[in-house]
Write a protein that binds this DNA or RNA. Structure first.
Length: 441
RNA sequence: GGAGGGGUGGCAGAGUGGUUGAUUGCGUCGGUUUCGAAAACCGAUUUGCUCGAAAGGGUAACGGGGGUUCGAAUCCCCCCCCCUCCGCCA
């Protein structure tokens, strides 16, 4: 969530920054107006509560005193609140009850307004990082770097679906079992999938300092709200039926972001760096028919995710470090790739700044997004209530970051298509050989 | 799925419906003492919201949500989590 204090302090600035993301200004004005009413109601209720608290505090001793001395006068605090001296405790009670009801009404009004505010804020995307390039569409994304050179082929490189028909890519079987978008791998490709997952995890845990996690694959709505998939992206999620009210995770970001939800971390504990392999489940609603050939876009895929919780002043450098960790995977696999910095128009809902890593796939003749490395500022931390103690010992909202390290199917596509030989075999890159157990596939 | 037990401040662990944000111990931080340290003693030590320039004030929170009451950590209801036992099953 956006900090409501930013809206109070400088609503125009918030509107400007959201406008770069093509968000209309109306909700901000609405929040501003509601917030003003909320604070008035809130204060009104608290003043009433304070008076009631004072009176109630004196009530007990008065009752006690009257047991010994039935003529004991009502306490001053009670008289003050009621504006008169009550004849006896029973009349006082009745009057206090009515005052309490008035207070409850005011509080209920305040709560209703706060719910409205939350409803708006939960559906507003994050403010872009000052460094994020302003743009109108994905065409304005900026290529920050390219690594490797595209291989020259002395034959026509095949797309992966033509390349590995005999190596275990069984899309029809997946379709029969679950439907399209649920790939079934058999034999060599199944083993390649496992080798990639293992290679990713080994690299990040033993060389990059991430702590390996194993997470649930189904989570509560609350968990999805923490990392900002809900309420906005309900349609993109698979949900178990109403008996369980659980959702299949679209990424390991979801469970990992909630690991420290509600906690205040000590300065020495951060940065926290987690990685996890999970399958990811996405409905891909609205993306039907777009780049869906082969395993380009599927409903279930494997991914190793990197996730970082850090103090706010360190998040920019952590973002670079995290992105480097993801890039290293591609470098080790010798896959030509580039780093794209997303412009304001193309930024994900919760991201403040984001690099996409794209691997070159000569068979399909396209750059494929294999990783998305985002920094969220305090956007997720505010929802998940993740805080860090600063140098002054005061708790402050943490910053969260995450990135794929990497998504398996598209990495596999790039690997297969880049390393194909004229005879139809595929060379396994050196770094992966220990995990795959052979030099060719 | 069934039967019990439990969820209180960083941790441990009290708590009779009425000066309880909460006894106490440990831990942590500061001070006294010391050549220095330990011990001892003294003091401090939750978080959010809100008002305020600040000092400070108000309010909320004892797993979560409702309810009873003038007043709830304390009583009632629902839900969640953890532990033990039984059943079932990888």
């Amino acid at each position: 969530m956006i900090d409501i204090k930013l809206i109070r302090d400088d609503a125009d600035d918030v509107k400007r920054r959201l406008a770069d993301r093509k968000v209309e200004p109306e909700p901000i004005d609405e929040v501003l107006k509601l917030d003003e009413t909320w604070r008035a109601k809130k204060t009104e209720g608290e003043v009433q509560q304070a008076a009631l608290n004072k009176a109630n505090k004196a009530f007990g001793p008065w009752m006690g005193g009257r047991k010994k001395n039935p003529d004991m006068p009502a306490p001053q605090q009670l008289v003050e609140l009621l504006g008169e001296t009550p004849a006896d405790p029973e009349t006082a009670k009745e009057k206090l009850r009515l005052l309490g009801e008035e207070k409850d009404k005011v509080e209920a009004e305040a709560d209703a307004i706060m719910n409205q505010i939350d409803g708006i804020l939960l559906n507003l995307p994050n403010l872009p990082h000052p460094q994020t390039p302003v743009g109108k569409s994905e065409d304005d994304n900026v290529i920050r770097k390219e690594w490797g050179t595209k291989r020259e082929f002395d034959f026509e490189p095949k797309a992966h679906w033509d390349l590995v028909g005999d190596k275990g890519l069984e899309l029809e079987i997946g379709g029969r079992i679950s439907g399209s978008g649920f790939p079934f791998l058999r034999g060599k490709l199944a083993k390649l999938e496992r080798a990639l997952i293992n290679f990713f995890l080994e690299l990040h845990t033993s060389e990059h300092g991430y702590t390996e996690c194993w997470t649930p694959f189904m989570v509560r709505g609350e968990t999805l709200r923490n990392s900002s998939q809900l309420p906005k992206f309900y349609d993109d999620l698979y949900r178990a039926d109403e008996r369980d009210d659980l959702y299949l995770i679209p990424t390991a970001e979801v469970p990992l972001t909630s690991v420290h939800a509600g906690e205040i971390l000590d300065a020495e504990q951060v940065p926290v760096r987690y990685c996890a392999f999970t399958p990811c489940f996405r409905r891909e609603a609205g993306a039907a028919g777009k780049d869906t050939r082969g395993i380009l876009r599927v409903h279930q895929f494997s991914k190793v995710e990197l996730m970082v919780v850090t103090a706010p002043d360190r998040s920019d450098e952590e973002h670079e470090t995290l992105t480097r960790c993801a890039e290293t995977v591609l470098e080790r696999l010798e896959i030509p790739h580039r780093r794209l910095e997303l412009c304001t128009a193309d930024l994900g809902f919760g991201a403040a700044r984001c690099y996409d890593l794209e691997a070159w796939a000569p068979g399909v003749g396209n750059w494929l997004e294999v990783s998305s490395c985002s920094t969220f500022g305090d956007f997720q931390a505010r929802r998940a209530k993740i805080r860090v103690r600063g140098e002054d010992k005061k708790p402050q909202l943490a910053h969260t970051l995450n990135g794929s390290g990497l998504a398996v199917p598209r990495t596999m596509i790039a690997l297969l298509e880049n390393n194909q030989q004229a005879d139809g075999t595929i060379n396994i890159p050196k770094a992966l050989q220990p995990h795959y157990g052979a030099e060719t596939l």
